[in-house]
Structures are given as C-alpha cells and as structure tokens.
Design a protein around this nucleic acid. Structure first.
Length: 608
RNA sequence: GCGGGUGUAGUUCAGUUGGUUAGAACGCUUCCCUGUCACGGAAGAGGUCGCGGGUUCGAGUCCCGUCACUCGCGCCA
C-alpha cells in the first residue's frame, strides 16, 4: 500500500466497506467523546469521518495537524449516517496512526468562516486557502483559465509568451520599474499589457494570438483593481470590429455559461445589443453601466430653464452652462421620509450639495394631456416641488416619463460632472429600492468611443483611450474636428464592470503620425517611444485588432465576490504590500551597488 | 494626494451620560463523557482598550496628533 494514502478523503463510499485503507489529510474537526473519538479528515478532495477508540496520539493532535491513518472502512450504524456528506454513509475505523505534522494553535478557524479580517487572512494566506470558500474559488479560477485556453485554441488561436522585462511606455498608467545592472541608470518596465508585442506578432504574420498575460500597473488599488493581474489578451489580423465581437462573444459567453452555476444558483447569461458610448453616458452616466439596474437618466434642463420655475440654485448653474439630470424612481412616493433623507445624506457624503427630488402624488385627469391615460400632475411634493408650478411639473413628467406615485431625483452640475454623479446616484437609488435584478449576467459591447477628449485643466486635446486605435474614417476624419472623431474601440461590460477593452488598431504609420500630432506628440517623440512598432508598420502591416479580458474580474463575477482578493491565491493588500512575504522590502547595500543605485528618498522615511 | 469607516482577548464583536475588578461567543488549556458530525458538560488561562499627548479627582469612552487596516475620490491611454 502507498505509504501515505490508498484513497483520497473524498473517495470512499458504501462499496468500499470492508476494505483496509490508508488516508492522509488535515484534522478538520475533532469530536472527543472520551471513549470514542471522531475526526473529520480533510484533503482537497473531501472529508471523511474517522473513528478511534482509546487512541492517545490522535486525542492529542490539534486541528489542522496532518495525519496518516490506516483502518477499515465500515458502515455507519443506522441513525448515524450523515446525509450532508458525500462520504457520510461510511467511516474509517482507525487501526494505526502516523502524525506527519503537528499544527500550532491556528490564528483563525479553517473549518468555518469566523469572519477573520483581511489583514490576518493575508498574513496566513496558506491557512486561508485551506478554507472551503477560498479553496473552491481558487479552483474556479484555475478552471476558468483552463477553459479560456481550450476555447481560444478551439478558435484557432495559439498562446504566445511576451517579455516581462520590457520598455517603459509613456502613456497610460505608471510603470513598475526594474533597474538594470548591466546598464547603469537605465530601467526595464514591467508590461502594463502586452499591447505592442501582440501587434508586432500580427506584423509577424501569426494571424491569431492569445495569452493569459500578466499585467502590472502602479496605480492605487481598488476592490476591483490590483497592481498585478491577468488578462485574456488576444489579437487577430484582417478583421473588423464585428469579427472580434463574434469570436469573443462566443468564448466569453461560453465561459459564463460553463461556470454559471458555481454559486449553486444557475444564473442566466444575457447579451444585450451594442451600446454607443454617448448613449451610455447620457442614459446611465457611466461607461460601464450595470444594466441589471432598470433606472435611467434623462435631461430636464429645459424644465428648470422655464420662467415659471423659480429654483435659483439650479438656474444659476444652468446659466453657467450646466445641466439638470433626472432619475425617475418608480412607485416610491409613499416611501417614508427616511428613504429620501438617506439618499440625500449619501449625496452630501459624496461631496454634493444634496439630492433634490419631487414626488408625484397623483396625476389629475384634467389639464395638459401627456398621451394615453396621462394628464397633468395635480401635485408634487418634496423640497424642490414648491419651485415647480403645475405647468412646469407637467413638462417634467413628460420629459422624465413620470407616473403617479413616482419620485424623480435631480442632479445639477456641468454636463459631464452631472452625468457622472447621476450615474452613481442611479446605482445608489437602485440599491436602496432593492430593484437590481438578480441571477443574471448582463453583457454587452460598448462601442463608438471618442478618439480624443479635451483636458479640462490644460485645454489641450488628448487621447481619451487607446492611442493605437484606428480613427473611424481614417485620415479624412483626422483632418476635421478632433473631438468628433470616433475610434474603432470597444469595451465589453458586464453587471457594471469593464471586463474587456480593445480596438481595431491603426496600422498605417502616416495616420498614426497624424493621430499623435493632434494629441500634441511630435514625430520625434513618436519615433522615440514607439519606433520599434512604427518601423514594423512600414514593412507591411496587416489590418488587425483585438482586446483583453480581465480574467480576475470574470472570476470575481462568477464567484459572486465583491473583491478581487477573494479570487486570487496569493495577493497583496490594499496598500500593495504582501504581509506574508513582507513585500515590498528593503534590499542590501550590495544589491544597490550592483544596480548602481544610491537611495536618496525625496520623502523622509523612518529607518527601521 | 484627499475623504468616509474601523481599530477592545488568538478570532469576531459588545461596552450606556466619563465612574469601582473591561465582557460575550468561538478558539485555547485541564478534567469528565462510547455515536458525534457546529457533540455535550465542568473549571481555567488569556487584555499596553492601535500608539503618543492633553482635559479630568477619574478616560476604552471626551479633545489633539499619529499609525494601521478598509471602502471610495483623484489616478487607472
């Protein structure tokens, strides 16, 4: 017999009764009854109850110790069968025990979720990973990655590796930098994405590339953002936007279908029609709207412009070019005052003046008609209502499609800021109303991004997203108003998360020069920073495009977890420190010397 | 860089208006228990109330500062 195990802890069934077996695993739980001792023995495959009588050695071991036991598989007596366990019909009667490793007292419970905080979980991540939830989520992540590889290969893509030590790129996020020993004073950068390499592979004629690619960005963290993360990165040649959508809708949709029941609840997958960037911003105030939220934003600036509307707080902003955005909240007029106060408090906490609203108590049958069955409102209530006379209220009802019993919330600011804040209010109101749809993944492609945007501070035109994207209309488009240029660029959005970003690339060096010139980058700068790729374009570049899906965000959605750290085995905390490995850490003088570096920190740090 | 929240036993938390010896649950230690499966029972150990300063007769509680964690804003082409 194998010296550690003949079976796993998830394997034995009634059919094994009578066999002598050997099991190894962790002591999950101990139930000592004096004369008889039960231990739930756990490995990654499952849990088997073992039973011992008068075994002093087993009685001594603490939870999470590792033991090997040999014994006989026996039927559990009637009434002692545990229907909750796959192995619950049998147990193993211990004959001999080898203690492989005694565990110290553990800092938090492995056998249950005792609510231990993230800092202590990360410090003892290996213990945390033994726990059922983390263990299964890490397996989910591995399975998702395997499925991605399989599906991409099935579509005719090959997986490539691209360099980790590469050159700093001037745009985008901050780079993680690695000093060079052989080249004093010079630095490698870790890739923010394999963007240029995958495009170069298209220049090399490989046609279909993919990679589960590690990416590094030195920006502050968020629940859905880490310093290092993985993307399903892909690129294809001789394609248009729709070709990318077709392939990746299949691959990603397939992944969602494949793992939709991970949480035990079978969730639906819905692909909604492509949405334009402008529509997303105007209706949802976000470039990654959660379409499980039915609320939409509309513009009611004209209502507040009326002479008979006397709400000067909004009027003043409108006169300076601002706008009023409205969010209709259906059938909440009878909610207690606290419902509205809570939202108002939230808005103030977010730095807004408040969240004004009007409730529509009833609509009369007389007055101006507003279509079938509708009529002018009899009255509105709420802090702003007294500034809005009936005729204006009627226009408001029409503009925001209000019905009797509805409330409407207002955000007033400069157009862009108003939309952004209305977008967040939209989500907040939805959650307070409890109307976010459950059990569904709502996916869609967000298209028609603007190529450029105006930097508010400098007044300069800059790339709004990816500078390598193809401007729709080519050179002609670039000779017009840059702010009207649409890029062949797209995102894939799911339940309020940006899952993917991509584009059809600009493969013409002349157009690229022009595109960068508009954003204020001279030919010299372009050559210096992207010379390698630009050169490649000059030797026959195929039209190409692609995208990159955030692997971890997909896993996070499938696992129904609000935080990326819940789906990663080893991960840094919110400050990008690893409390287990003690990273980042000091280095020795010798290492510094090798790298030709001398520390002269601009900000004084206390010596350890 | 900025803002919100949190910080009390190994873990998760409670702690009233400032008032005597800072509590609970789980975990831990010792003991009892032959059918449990979140076993049960008895006893016990375990605290620089994040840290520093202040107010006060008296501070876990109030004030100031600081640190850590966390969520968000900025940032993330």
């Amino acid at each position: 017999m194998h010296s550690y195990r003949s079976h796993t802890c998830g394997q034995l069934r009634k059919s094994n009764v009578g066999e002598t077996v050997r099991l190894s695993g962790w002591v999950h739980r101990k139930r000592d009854h004096g004369g008889v001792l039960f231990i739930d023995l756990r490995d990654t495959y499952g849990i088997t109850q073992i039973v011992a009588q008068g075994n002093a050695e087993l009685e001594r071991v603490r939870a999470e110790s590792v033991v090997t036991i040999e014994g006989e598989v026996v039927n559990r007596a009637e009434g002692t069968v545990n229907a909750k366990m796959p192995t619950g019909e049998i147990e193993v009667a211990v004959k001999s025990v080898t203690v492989q490793s005694i565990a110290d007292v553990i800092p938090f419970q492995v056998s249950e979720d005792d609510g231990a905080g993230e800092d202590v979980r990360l410090k003892y991540r290996y213990l945390d990973l033994r726990r059922e939830g983390m263990h299964s989520r890490v397996r989910l992540r591995n399975n998702v990655i395997a499925a991605m590889r399989r599906r991409m290969w099935d579509e005719g893509f090959q997986e490539f590796n691209t360099p980790i030590l590469t050159a700093s790129s001037p745009e985008g996020a901050r780079d993680y930098l690695v000093p060079s020993r052989l080249h004093p004073g010079k630095f490698y950068a870790l890739p923010q994405a394999p963007q240029q390499f995958k495009q170069l592979l298209m220049m090399s004629g490989f046609d279909r590339y993919f990679q589960i690619a590690p990416c590094f960005r030195d920006e502050d963290g968020r629940a859905d953002r880490l310093a290092e993360f993985y993307q399903l990165d892909m690129e294809m040649s001789f394609v248009q936007q729709e070709d990318i959508f077709k392939v990746m809708t299949g691959v990603i949709g397939g992944i969602f279908e494949e793992f939709a029941d991970f949480t035990g609840e079978k969730r639906r997958i819905e692909w909604l029609p492509n949405m334009g960037y402008v529509e997303a911003m105007e209706k949802y105030g976000s470039d990654k709207p959660d379409l499980r939220n039915p609320l939409v934003i509309c513009d009611v600036t004209n209502v507040f412009k009326r002479d008979d509307v006397t709400f000067n707080a909004f009027k003043g902003v409108i006169e300076k070019g601002g706008a009023v955005k409205a969010i209709r909240a259906p059938k909440v007029a009878d909610k207690p005052r606290s419902f509205f106060d809570k939202l108002n408090d939230w808005a103030r906490g977010e730095g807004a003046v408040g969240l004004g609203y009007i409730t529509i108590d009833s609509l009369s049958l007389e007055g101006e008609g507003r279509g079938e069955g509708g009529a002018a409102p009899l009255e509105g209530k709420g802090p702003i209502a007294k500034f809005v006379p009936p005729a204006a209220l009627a226009e408001l009802c029409k503009a925001a499609a209000l019905e009797s019993g509805d409330a409407v919330f207002f955000v007033c600011d400069k157009e862009e800021k108003a939309l952004k804040f209305a977008g967040r209010a939209r989500d907040r109101i939805c959650d307070d109303m409890g109307i976010r749809e459950k059990g569904v993944f709502k996916l869609f492609w967000l298209v028609d991004f603007p190529m450029y945007e105006l930097d508010e501070k400098t007044g300069k035109v800059d790339f709004s997203h990816n500078p390598f994207s193809e401007p729709r209309g080519g050179m002609d488009a670039l000779n017009g108003d840059p702010l009207k240029v649409i890029a062949n660029q797209y995102d894939c959005v799911c339940n309020g998360f940006e899952l993917c970003s991509g584009g059809i690339r600009n493969h013409r060096p002349d157009i690229m020069e022009r595109a960068f010139a508009i954003a204020g980058y001279s030919k010299d700068v372009l050559e210096k920073k992207f010379g390698g790729m630009l050169n490649a374009f000059r030797y026959g570049a195929p039209p190409h495009g692609g995208c990159a899906f955030g692997v971890d965000r997909i896993v996070m959605l499938l696992a129904d977890e609000p935080n990326l750290r819940e789906v990663y085995a080893f991960v840094m905390n919110g400050q990008y420190e690893d409390p287990m490995m003690n990273a980042p850490s000091d280095i020795t003088e010798a290492q510094l010397k090798d790298l030709h570096l001398k520390l002269n920190l601009l900000k004084k740090v206390e010596a350890a």
